[in-house]
C-alpha cells in the first residue's frame, strides 16, 4: 500500500526480530505498571489515611507528600530517581548498585512511577474517606468497636467500593505514564516502537500498533472493573442515576 509516496510495510510488526521485540515491550509495560501500582496502592493508602487524621503533624506530612509529587512533572521525578538518587547513597553502596543491579533503570522506573501515582491514589483515598459522614464513624465507635475494627468492618468495605471507579482511572493513568520510562532507557512498548524505526524507517506502523495495544489493554481493564463493580454493588445504592 502506498499513500503520499510512503510505502506501508506492516510485516515489521511480526517479522523477526521485531515481532519478538514488540511482544517483549508489551510484557515489560505490563509488569512495570503493575509493580508500580502495588507500590502506589500501598503508599497511597497510608498517605491518604494520614490526610484525614486528627493529629495535625500527621495530616501535614500527608499533605506535603501530595503537594511535592503533584506539583513537579513526572519526568523530573523520573530523572531524579534515575540520575540523582544513587548519588545520595554512600560510595560503596553506589558501587554495589552498579555491580549488582544491571537493570537499575527498570527499578528506578517502578519506584518513580509508584511514588508519583501514590500521590494521586492518596487524593482519591482521602476523598473517599471524607465522603463518609462523620456520624457513620461515630455510630461504629459508639457500639464499642476498636479503631481497627471500625476501619476493618465498617469504613473500609464501604470506602473501597466508592473508590473503585476513581482508582481504576488512576491505574490507567499509571499504565499510560509507564511509557515515560523510555526516557531513562527502559525497553517498554513505546520505546520499542520508536527503536524499531531506527532500523526500518517504519515507525508509523510500530507506533500505530503500540497505540492499539494501549487502547486494547485499557478497554480490557475498564471491562474487568465494570464487572467487579457489578459484583460488589451495594443493593439500592450504587449505579443509580448514573
Amino acid at each position: 500500500m502506498e499513500i503520499f509516496h510512503y510505502t506501508f510495510d506492516w510485516s515489521v510488526l511480526w517479522r523477526s526480530p521485531y515481532g519478538g521485540m514488540l511482544v517483549k515491550g508489551i510484557v515489560t509495560t505490563l509488569h512495570l505498571s503493575l509493580l508500580a501500582w502495588v507500590v502506589a496502592l500501598t503508599l497511597g493508602m497510608v498517605v491518604g489515611v494520614a490526610r484525614v487524621q486528627p493529629l495535625r503533624w500527621v495530616r501535614f506530612a500527608g499533605g506535603a507528600y501530595v503537594q511535592v509529587f503533584r506539583n513537579t512533572p513526572f519526568l523530573v521525578q523520573l530523572f531524579f530517581w534515575y540520575f540523582a538518587a544513587p548519588l545520595l547513597l554512600p560510595k560503596q553502596d553506589q558501587q554495589w548498585l552498579y555491580d549488582n543491579v544491571p537493570d537499575y533503570a527498570y527499578w528506578a522506573g517502578v519506584l518513580a512511577l509508584g511514588a508519583y501515582t501514590a500521590s494521586r491514589v492518596a487524593e482519591q483515598v482521602r476523598a473517599g474517606l471524607l465522603s463518609i459522614p462523620p456520624d457513620q464513624y461515630r455510630a461504629a465507635y459508639a457500639s464499642g468497636m476498636t479503631g481497627f475494627q471500625v476501619y476493618r468492618y465498617v469504613i473500609a468495605p464501604f470506602a473501597l467500593r466508592i473508590m473503585l471507579p476513581p482508582l481504576t482511572t488512576e491505574f490507567l493513568t499509571c499504565f499510560k505514564n509507564s511509557a515515560l520510562a523510555m526516557t531513562i532507557g527502559v525497553m517498554e512498548v513505546t520505546h520499542t516502537a520508536y527503536y524499531i524505526d531506527s532500523f526500518t524507517w517504519h515507525g508509523l506502523e510500530t507506533t500505530s500498533a503500540a497505540s492499539a495495544v494501549y487502547l486494547c489493554i485499557a478497554l480490557c481493564i475498564i471491562g474487568l472493573m465494570a464487572l467487579t463493580e457489578k459484583r460488589v454493588r451495594i443493593v439500592g445504592m450504587m449505579g443509580r442515576g448514573r
Binding site: 499513500i3 509516496h5 508509523l204 507506533t207
Partner: peptide, 24 residues
C-alpha cells in the same frame, strides 16, 4: 476516548512519524 487512552509521549512520536508521510 482515543486520545485519553494513549500516553502523550506516544502521541508525540506517532505524529512525528505521520507528518512526513502526509507532507512529504
Amino acid at each position: 476516548h482515543f486520545f485519553r487512552g494513549l500516553p502523550l509521549i506516544l502521541v508525540i512520536f506517532w505524529l512525528y512519524f505521520l507528518f512526513p508521510v502526509i507532507t512529504g
